[in-house]
Amino acid sequence: MTIHRFRLLALSVLFGLTVGAGMATAGGERIAFEATLVWGTNDPLPPDCKLKPVDEEVSRKLCKLPFKWKNYYAVREQAFSVKLGDQKEVTMSEECEILVTPLKDDKVELALRGKGKMVGKVTQKLEVNRLLVTGGNAENLTSWFVVLRRVQGD
């Protein structure tokens, strides 16, 4: 009788742990990101421009990329968090939106939409403080970048 009770208790604990873990996964921790639309140029900013340089660390990492631009300005910064497997649409500018989907194993899918048209999507493992940078040419020999950084969640 005692053994039977013990088995019942053990099974209950096991069941509880399994369901709890499942719920924790299903409830999903939120993965935090920062997305920055960046303008790359070699020209100094006009006096009336309110853009500010990207933060020092991002600037240093961008400057290490094999590009000719020396100045990187943050056009728009967005901080957000998404549940694992969910998709978050973030507007970076009137013409640029990104769709961020955290996947298993620290991977993230970043889809780009320009002028309302899907451009493509990139999937990449992205650990905390790592950068996933997409970019292209812009007018007047400048460039645009979307810098996606995974940040430590709360």
């Binding site: 290490k64 320009g114 451009v119 990139v122 992205l126 790592r130 950068l131 996933l132 970019g135 292209g136």
Partner: peptide
């Protein structure tokens, strides 16, 4: 950039 952990995807339209 393996040292900095940065991945760049350069797009051209």
């Amino acid at each position: 950039d393996y040292d900095e952990g940065t991945t760049l995807l350069w797009l051209s339209y």
